[in-house]
Structure formats: structure tokens, C-alpha cells
Design a protein around this nucleic acid. Structure first.
Lengths: 106, 106
DNA sequence: TGAGATATGTCTCAAAAAAGACATATTGTA
DNA sequence: TACAATATGTCTTTTTTGAGACATATCTCA
């Protein structure tokens, strides 16, 4: 049995809009990289490599979509990311686009 | 003034989901390649190269998402594409995903 | 104490995608 | 008659993306 159309669509969205997917996760709850990977791989049947995520997180922070702070937890250092107002704007633009796409679908 | 977030989202969707965008257009009204390019470039502020579209149309037909028939109009030969039931399934999967994405956005 | 999990980061090479050229033919119009 | 528009196709080169390795450090549990 081949993978369903929807599964493939989800995978393609995560490939192309990983930035937006990450922003949405972090918007819902501030998180560190490792947990983002676990969340994505658990919720969706998607492999998210840390070599793809960490550089992206760095870029999102550099571009002002995220803000990070190092927090130690049981001796382990975590880099917790929070969404910025610019990040929220991007997520909103994405949602607006989805809304319009669906409206024109009928 | 930099391009708005939404404009960029639309461009990214057309880059990655050009197959679905084409299927949606053809579903709405059977069309030939040249007209698809004109429609996309007119409706959205997007450059769609024929060197990207024609091979894609061939692949979509080969994979059973589209069916074509040559029609002569004023001596010019057009290859009119129609969506198949498999093509409709893919568009539906895309719309279902968008619906779910929006639901989980709140 | 050794293995697996947690945690973050870079770097290189291969694969995929995009840009742009190469190629051809007809029609309409200035 | 020459140029722009219509119409469809391929091919090569460049750019981008992705997979997987390289690198390091701590914690937990058997």
C-alpha cells in the first residue's frame, strides 16, 4: 500500500514550511531544539534531522522571528526559544493564506 | 518596502506545490500549458517558466493526475488538459490538510 | 562502567530543483 | 515582411536542499 496523498502533503509542507511549523510549535509553547524534534517526529510521521533544525533555529533568531535564552535544567543546558512579534506576523500570514486558499476552493 | 510575508508564502507554495496549483486550475476549467502560465502570472505575482511547466504537465499525465487531448484552434494546436479522479483526490487531500491546519491554529 | 538518551552544533557530498538557453512552428499585426 | 504573441518541447548549468557524517558534552539507568 502506497502512502496516502495526505501523508505526502504533510511531508512536503514540513519540508518547505519547516520555519512556519517551528514557529507555530514555539508559539504554542516555548521550546528547545531537541524537544521540537521529538514533538514533530511524534505528532507527524516525519523524520526531522537536527542538522536541518539547528541551523534553521539560528537563522530564525538572526532574522528576528525567534528569541532564545539558555536555561540549565538538571545540569543540561537548553536553549529555549520564544516567538517574537515578527514571528507571529509570519504565522498569521501563513494562516491567512490557508484561509484564502480554502475559500477559493469551492 | 520589502515583500509582504503573505506574498512570499504564496511564492513558496507555488514553488513546492505547483502540481496541486495546476490541478486546481485545470479542475476549475480545462486548459493548455500556455494559458496556465498566463493565468498564474496574471493572478499571482509569480514567474512561471514554461521549462518548469511542460515537463510537470507530462509527469502529471504519466502519473494519471491529468489527461490530455490535442485540439486545433485557428490552426494552432493546443494540448488541453483535464483533471482525472486521481487528480481530484490529490486536490482534496491538499484541501483537507489545509482545513486541519487551520483548525489546530487556535 | 558502558550504553542509550538528552542536548547542540558544523561540514561535506550528493541529489533535486530552478534558471535560462536551445529549438521549432504558426498566427496576427504594424 | 519583420516582429510580437501563441504554443510546445528539451537540455545544460547553476543553485539550493537534504542526507549523513563529524564533533562534543552531560545525564540516567542497568
Amino acid at each position: 500500500m502506497s502512502k496516502s496523498f495526505k501523508t505526502r502533503i504533510v511531508q512536503r509542507i514540513y519540508r518547505t514550511f519547516l520555519d512556519v511549523m517551528v514557529l507555530k510549535l514555539v508559539q504554542n509553547e516555548p521550546m528547545w531544539g531537541y524537544k521540537i524534534i521529538k514533538c514533530v517526529e511524534e505528532q507527524r510521521e516525519i523524520r526531522l534531522r537536527h542538522s536541518a533544525l539547528y541551523p534553521l533555529l539560528g537563522k530564525l533568531e538572526k532574522d528576528g522571528f525567534l528569541r532564545s535564552s539558555r536555561k540549565a535544567k538538571n545540569g543540561r543546558v537548553r536553549k529555549i526559544y520564544n516567538i517574537t512579534s515578527k514571528g507571529i506576523q509570519l504565522v498569521n500570514a501563513y494562516n491567512e493564506f490557508l484561509t484564502e486558499e480554502l475559500k477559493s476552493a469551492h
